[in-house]
Amino acid sequence: MSVWLHSKRIARYGLIGFIRNGFVSLSAILMLTITLFVMAGLVMASAALSSTLKQLNDKVDVNVYFSVKASNDDVQGVKLALEALPDVAQVTYVSPDEALALFRSRHGTDQVTMQALDQLGDNPLGASLSIRAKNTSKYQDIANYLESVQTAALGASITKVNFNQNKTAIQRLSDIIETSRRVGYATVIIFMIASVIIAFNTIRLTIYTARDEIGVMNLVGAGKWYVRGPFMIAGVLYGAIAGLFVVVFLYPFSAWTAPGSDRLFAGAFNTLDFYTSHFLLFFFTLMGTGVALGVLSSFLAIRRYLR
């Protein structure tokens, strides 16, 4: 008696049991489908949240303006000092010429300003540095650092640190970002746990309905794998079918929510784009999670009937 022969028989009974207990199978698939769908929805929601956060994050920065007289060495010195700070993600140098070009493009339609600028002849704008922090909560530290440097030789040519102007706005934004991130993770974890428990209990019920049959199998001396194998195969089928349902259903669902998500997240997140660009990830994660849930639940639920 080979392992192959036993496996073949176990797989066959798994399939037969799945089909003959049609109603039970259907409810298990339905529950797993709902569980997986909730999970996929949460993944989408948290992806939407983090891409919005990222976009907001990118909009926050600290700008340091230098006087027109500042030499290139002065500016590069401050830039190097900033880049050495652990909280700084990126420092972008904007030369006086670039600043002027930017100014012209912004105010090109304003005749009065343009005329005034032309009369000046020289470029009235100094160089500036645009600083991006690794984390919004770090802007305060960077601003503090810049203020302390302003009175020292290194920063003598700094005319303005514009974080001060946006200070409260940036602070509030960073608080909101932190809180929503924490609430988001907590919600995802709670929902995941809840849906896993529901799925597990549904499969436990399917095995509970078969407890007499399991008892008879034990009494005629069936090996443990003979008893639990078919139920685990059925678990695989529940999970795979539910996973497939969700993968298929997510397409019309994300197409349906796409315009709404565009509006809500101001173009930062589109459900349909996200789903199609992450399709393989969704496919394997959903199928994998479904199958793992089905098999593991069956395995755990049948243990007590196998003594």
Binding site: I16, A210, G215, M217, N218, L219, V220, G221, K224, R307
Partner: peptide, 25 residues
């Protein structure tokens, strides 16, 4: 042991008073 017991049961033929057939087979 569990394994020995299952082996023993395979070596005994039992007709149960209440039949104990497998309902889905």
């Amino acid at each position: 042991s569990q394994q020995e017991l299952r082996a023993l049961r395979r070596n005994i033929g039992t007709v149960f008073q209440d039949f104990r057939l497998l309902p889905t087979k």
